[in-house]
Design a binder for these strands. Sequence first.
RNA 1: GCUCCAGUAGCUCAGGGGAUAGAGCAUUGGUUUCCUAAACCAAGUGUCGCAGGUUCGAAUCCUGCCUGGAGCGCCA
Length: 583
Amino acid sequence: MPVCRGKSALEQLNKTLEAAIESALRSAQQAGELPQFEIPRIPVSPPKRAGQGDWAYPAMGLARLARKSPLDIARLIVDRLPKLGFAGKIEIAPPGFINCTIADDYLRKQIDAMLAAGTVYFRLDIGEGKRAQVEFVSANPSGPITIGHTRNAVVGDAMARLLEAAGYAVQREYYYNNAGNQMIILGKSLQLRYWQQLGDDAPLPADHYQGEYLVDIARDLVAEHGESLRGQSWHFFKEVAEQVMFRWIKRSLAAINIQHDAFFNETSLFDSGQIWSVLDTMREHGHIYQATHWEGADADEIADVTSKGYEPATWFRSSSFGDEKDRVMVKSDGVPTYTLPDIAYHRDKLERGFDIAVNVLGTDHFSQAQVVKHGLRALGMDPAPIDVIFLQMVRAVRWNAELGDFEAVKQSKRAGDFDTLDDLVAMTSADAVRYHMLARSPNSQLDFDVDQVVKQSNENPVYYIQNAYVRCAGILREAADRGFDGDDADLNLLGKEELKFIRKALEMGNVIEQAITLYEPHKIAFFAHELAGVFHPIYDEVRVLHSEVPAETAKARLRFYRAASTVFGCLLQLMGMSAPERM
RNA sequence: GCUCCAGUAGCUCAGGGGAUAGAGCAUUGGUUUCCUAAACCAAGUGUCGCAGGUUCGAAUCCUGCCUGGAGCGCCA
């Protein structure tokens, strides 16, 4: 699903300004006005208050190096600053800020540029010609998508969209395992549920899958096949369960606008022998040994393993890469642990040549992810392209008045639970799920307040943002009905407020870049909300089709709203939300 | 015990060296003849967990501590 494809038109003004300031400093040094020193990177940033320009540079950071007062340094910079196409006023403010304002003319031109380019206007070129992969969700097909997977799915897909907007060619991948113990138990659980449906006394052991969804599948099997499956082994039921699960998973994800390009099966690493070649290479590099316990084990650990009576296992000396202990690659019974295929999978990823490979995981995989990176180093590879977004826990909660506190919503057999993606969507909406799951820093725990999202949806940021788009659409629709267009508008008739909106919109490029370089896609959600906050007061005040608005002014304003519509359309697309024409 | 994350307004959370710390929700009062109320305008609240340190400047970086959460398997 390509987002914002095409050639970039958006200039990242902060970068232009930073480069200009550096050049001014260099020039001042050459002229002997400043001593020689390495110019530190001091970023320009948008100031917090009005009247301080659009971008501010604190020259205070240079005072020590330059052995001059910040104000003097600021003056030297401003004197030698190259001409900037976008700059209006450039002012110096105590204690040593350089405040640069974007010229109104430049802002007006951007409206034309946005209309000419459409959402492509906001595309960046930092990922041009590069390939990125986002691996996310990666839930084994043993049950429905839970609320935890949902956060993972939303963050991963948003990351993918942001990377696309930054110019990367992005692949969305889903890694899964359908071979392990869990899947065997799943098959056996379904088999028992099937027998139960036939009226047999077939109790489900406690370690089997208790979920009601297997009963549903069993019921369907009876409806379709009657008793004819009674003789089938658990293998058969595993296959059935897996197929149904994946169908459900894909359908659930599609409901929130998420689709993977590739599904990578862990089993293929066994079939192709890749896990063994990984192990061989690690052994050749001297990182593998056979033992009943790891080399650094203390007396307690040794006593513990001894009591279990293990035969020797195959260990990876990960401690030599900084791990706190070594890890088992192949258990004493000859079966590999999860870690070995995981290393093989990531080797395969690196060999596929992605410039960036983002992995979205819960924090419970923190240690595992470290071990995988150690493993890649042991293979002589550089794991640098691989980055992991760790998500803190998420749970559905609701207010409990008796407790006077929030209470986790647990998966329950009865209707009215909210613990799966389907439940969340049913009770709220796909857009609400996407926004609320995205609008939180990955390393904050998230309590998804079901009642708030449901009950107060009228006061929801989701609708606040979408309504900005809807309002633009309303104007454009009405204008079209009246046969009114703003194509030959004089944008000089626009007011300060409209230009303020354009100013804010121009920050989007920086937000996208920050979101992908810091791996914090939630930034786009907050930006969207802020931008809507700038929009609504304007909409309230600046009318287009009103008897008191002169025709020429109306044309200019119509053009402005057309541009605003483009901006919100792009933002909603980036967040995977719908852009409704009406609400 | 060790590692990671969080602690900011009544609640949910942004901000992660720069100017007077923000938003939503909740509370209070006001706003619609003509695209508009899922909106707008106005009002109030803070020992940025605690204590030191670094810096011209710290909510932000460092150290220690307190509280809450997650992880530390021959599980996946």
